[in-house]
Design a protein around this nucleic acid. Structure first.
Length: 744
DNA sequence: GACATATCTAAAGCC
DNA sequence: TAGATATGTC
């Protein structure tokens, strides 16, 4: 094998990008054009061929999953144990801030507040300021504050920016108070992580210089989704000088302007459109060969995105066959739509479900699909909606741990001071809050003061004292305890577990199960990193997102929004709800380029599909309990009609759909609500058993196997979880234990 | 302070 | 429709 064999796997354009190492580089990577390979090979090339130390490279992504994937693939290329910063924007900033928090007036052990925490803070402030949260939604304040932080508008500048109306002045005072509260609680929100890092760089030149010298090569993934502050962050790092005093600008960004779908969240598409202006002398490489989708799917995607005005000119092409046409089906209502989808999956899956994805516009659409799929007894997983870490019991126990970690965290204290019930109600909490604010002390400090306690009734002061002592004790001992032991101790000694056990309801049962599940999460972390401190552990959890939980090996249909599907791919994709008002959503018209963004979202959806794509719409749809007649999405009309199967478009097909569900069996099966957790556990068990079985059958490379659907094939690759088989038509990766394959 | 009932509101969600 | 929150009652 040659030294640069990994480069040989790239096409010419990819190679060009991977081997461009000095000076600014923009890689315009269309959907499915092998962007991750290109990036990882570039990193390998830097290290192996250019002699750059991994220490000097920074690669930032948006999701942990993307970061993890990149890290893994780089490790594959250059060997294990690479100590390199391949991180999300937020974790990179967090790491930096931990070292220098004092410069900004924060303690090193500052907490990271998630949106739920933020909302509690806002609510508290509204109460203080006598703002009626019925008239003014706390979410409004939050989104305004977030907008400000992304655009670096301080509370003082707020009214300059947005006007001096009554409303704006109110937002300003909430924003101001919000900042004070976080500072006092020694906490930062997600936006702060980025903002404060930039502020740190501005405030302390030595610190900036340190990181500029360290990160001589900066790479940014999904550049089209960066906001102003993220742009500033990378720009400042790239602004480093070399020995001769020239700006280094060794920055490589990868993105696709057609996939910018987060403008509503502050992403600034101009960052990518104007990269060449920002970084003079930038080289631009376009990756236009698509390795993912059939030609028809690609053409369909193109026919839609073409309707956008502001885009970089490029056109994806492929060597792949035309493949199937896109199937469009209009149905009576959203139930029929879901049954149609479930029926199609049932018809085609052959027991293999993780090839299928249902990608909808809004989370609310998931319900009907859950129902239809569970009637068919098709395993599925819903991503999004309620985050695992947003569950009450998990948040509660996390707050215990947070308080132990950072006693100034008043928010955590308020959340758990009466959880389990200790007889501490709103009045007592108000009293404490007021005194803490008055004396400039943390609420926890007050609880340790006998004089403060004496203001409360006998029963209450006992309870408060006990609570404070519990926290104090474990705060002192946390360094000497394993995280899992601390977790147990808090759960038991706080009485939290017992309170749940005493309830003896199904709901409490499931909460306990969740808590046990969480403990196994802790075990996993401890196993991987025995030296992990409590603080570090909490950080990992805080920065975890939902898509990070997507396990491609799990044999289940995936249900998620189009947004979370970005970056993923599936052989079979369903896009339901192709209706005006839903997709594109009505709100798209609130923003000037809203419709274009929706169209990009449609493009993202279509390009997730490798082999087949279904689109459906419902003639009537019930939203929020109200039934409405719908009109077919304008995107359907933009789609090249020659690529759509049959003549079903724009007219309802006669009941072929209902037929998919009229086999009786499914109809008579009672609907039972689907228990995610139970299912997950069952799956884990089944999977373990199935894998055992698969191991005992021990497939080897070269074996001839039979699949009821795909026929006979030869095993070409075998890992402990998956097996790759070359069938007559093509090679397929199958999940061991789930794929109905047998040795011949 | 705890529990039951009435009322309100509703995208997308990286980190 | 369903969930989260505000209000009322014991």
């Amino acid at each position: 094998m040659g030294r640069t064999d990994y480069l040989d796997r790239l096409n010419d354009k990819q190679k060009e990008a991977a081997m461009h190492t000095e000076g600014p580089l923009l890689i315009l990577a269309g959907a499915g054009s092998g962007k991750t390979s290109t990036m990882t090979c570039r990193i390998a090339y830097l290290i192996r061929e250019m002699g750059v130390s991994p220490y000097n490279i920074l690669a930032v992504t948006f999701t942990n999953k993307a970061a993890g994937e990149m890290r893994e693939r780089v490790a594959d290329l250059i060997g294990e144990g690479v100590n390199m910063w391949i991180l999300t924007f937020h974790s990179a900033c967090l790491r930096i801030l931990r070292y220098h928090a004092e410069v900004l007036g924060y303690g090193r052990d500052f907490a990271v507040y998630d949106p739920t925490d933020q909302k509690s803070v806002i609510k508290g402030i509204c109460k203080d300021l006598n703002i009626d949260t019925k008239k003014f939604n706390p979410n409004y304040f939050l989104s305004q504050i977030s907008k400000c932080k992304e655009a670096r508008i301080s509370p003082k500048q707020y009214c300059n920016e947005f006007g001096y109306d009554f409303k704006e002045e109110m937002v300003q005072s909430v924003y101001e108070k919000y900042e004070q509260t976080l500072q006092k609680n020694n906490a930062m929100d997600f936006d702060d992580l980025l903002l404060k890092t930039v502020e740190l760089f501005e405030k302390d030149e030595a610190v900036l210089l340190k990181y500029q010298n360290r990160f001589q090569y900066v790479m940014v993934d999904e550049y089209q989704d960066t906001n102003m502050i993220q742009y500033t962050f990378v720009k400042m790092l790239a602004d480093a000088r070399d020995e001769r005093g020239n700006v280094r600008n060794n920055i490589c960004v990868v993105g696709d302007d057609d996939q910018c779908i987060y403008q509503w969240r502050g992403a600034d598409i101009r960052n990518i459109l104007e990269f060449e202006k920002d970084f003079p002398g930038a080289e631009v490489v376009k990756l236009e060969q698509n390795y993912r989708s059939s030609a028809n799917i690609l053409a369909a995607a193109h026919s839609v995105i073409e309707h956008n005005r502001d885009r970089k000119q490029k056109k994806l092409w492929t060597d792949a066959e035309d493949g199937s046409k896109i199937i469009y089906q209009r149905l009576d209502n959203e139930r029929d739509e879901a049954y149609f989808v479930a029926g199609e999956i049932n018809r085609l899956s052959g027991g293999r479900y993780n090839d299928f994805a249902v990608l909808y516009r809004t989370n609310a659409q998931s319900r009907t699909f859950e129902e239809a799929l569970s009637r068919r007894e098709i395993p599925y997983r819903v991503l999004g909606g309620l985050r695992y870490y947003d569950r009450k019991e998990i948040k509660d126990i996390m707050c215990y741990m947070r308080l132990v970690q950072n006693k100034a965290d008043n928010l955590a204290l308020v959340r758990i001071i009466n959880e389990p019930k200790r007889g501490i109600g709103g009045k007592s909490i108000e009293k404490l809050t007021a005194q803490a604010a008055g004396q400039g002390k943390s609420m926890f400090q007050l609880l340790m003061d006998p004089e403060v306690l004496s203001q409360f009734g006998n029963k209450q002061s006992m309870a408060l004292k006990e609570f404070a002592e519990l926290i104090e004790r474990y705060s002192a001992e946390k360094e000497n305890m394993k995280i899992s032991d601390l977790y147990d101790a808090l759960l038991v000694n706080s009485g939290y577990l017992k309170a749940l056990e005493d309830q003896k309801t199904i709901e409490a049962e499931s909460r306990i199960e969740n808590l046990m599940e969480f403990k196994s999460v802790i075990y996993d972390y401890e196993k991987d990193e025995p030296d992990l401190t409590l603080a570090e552990f909490m950080e990992r959890i805080a920065l975890l997102a939902d898509v990070d939980n997507h396990d491609t090996d799990e044999n289940a249909v995936v249900l998620m929004t189009l947004h979370s599907a970005k970056g993923l791919e599936f052989p079979y994709v369903f896009m339901p709800g192709m209706e005006d008002g839903l997709f594109p959503g009505w709100r798209a018209f609130d923003r000037p380029d809203g419709l274009e963004e929706e169209r990009r979202l449609c493009y993202v959806g279509i390009t997730r599909a490798k082999e087949r794509l279904w689109m459906t719409s419902a003639e009537t749809r019930t939203i929020y309990g109200k039934m409405d007649y719908t009109r077919e999405s304008q995107f359907l009309h933009e789609l090249d009609k020659n690529l759509i199967e049959g003549d079903g478009i724009y007219e309802k097909k006669e009941k072929s759909v209902a037929g998919a569900f009229k086999d009786g069996a499914a109809e008579s099966a009672p609907y039972k609500p689907f228990d995610q957790l139970k299912y997950a556990k069952q799956q884990t068990k089944q999977r373990a058993a199935a894998m055992e079985k698969a191991k005992s059958e021990s497939f080897k490379v070269g074996d001839i196997v039979r699949h009821p659907k795909f026929g006979e094939g030869k095993v070409v690759e075998c890992t402990d979880k998956t097996i790759r088989v070359e069938f007559a038509d093509e090679a397929r990766k199958l999940a061991l234990g789930f794929a109905p394959i047998e040795k011949v």
